[in-house]
């Protein structure tokens, strides 16, 4: 990670870093596509989502410079995700624990 200091607090990421990140993203895309042709049952979902989350994280950290942002940006980047988890989690809890009255 090379940073050139010029204006205050500006981190300029080098093109080399970007290309490494891009290559990693492409490799992971290839992995998910490849894995989708093999039947692992439920693990297909797990693998796909884990890989997608790693991809999303490095896009956020490097392409979007989240790595260099202050804590308040981190809070507002992560808090919506926890709300999303809450929305999905609790709606699923409701939907799949209902007693069906005949």
């Amino acid at each position: 990670m090379s940073t050139h200091s010029h204006a205050e607090e500006h981190h300029i990421t080098s093109n080399k870093t970007y290309i490494v990140v891009w290559a990693a993203l492409m490799v992971m895309t290839a992995i998910t596509v490849y894995v989708s042709y093999i039947n692992f049952g439920t693990f297909n979902i797990v693998i796909a989502l884990v890989v997608a989350s790693i991809k999303a994280s490095i896009v956020a950290l490097y392409f979007m410079h989240l790595k260099f942002e202050d804590s308040i940006t981190w809070v507002f980047a992560l808090f919506p995700l926890s709300l999303l988890a809450l929305l999905i989690g609790m709606t699923i809890t409701d939907t799949f624990t209902r007693t069906i009255v005949p």
Binding site: M90, T93, D94, T95, F96, T97, R98, T99
Partner: peptide
């Protein structure tokens, strides 16, 4: 707390 508006809507007992 949102589902407290829905206690009679047929949501699950656990929720």
């Amino acid at each position: 707390v949102w589902a407290h508006h829905m206690f009679t809507s047929g949501i699950s007992d656990i929720a």
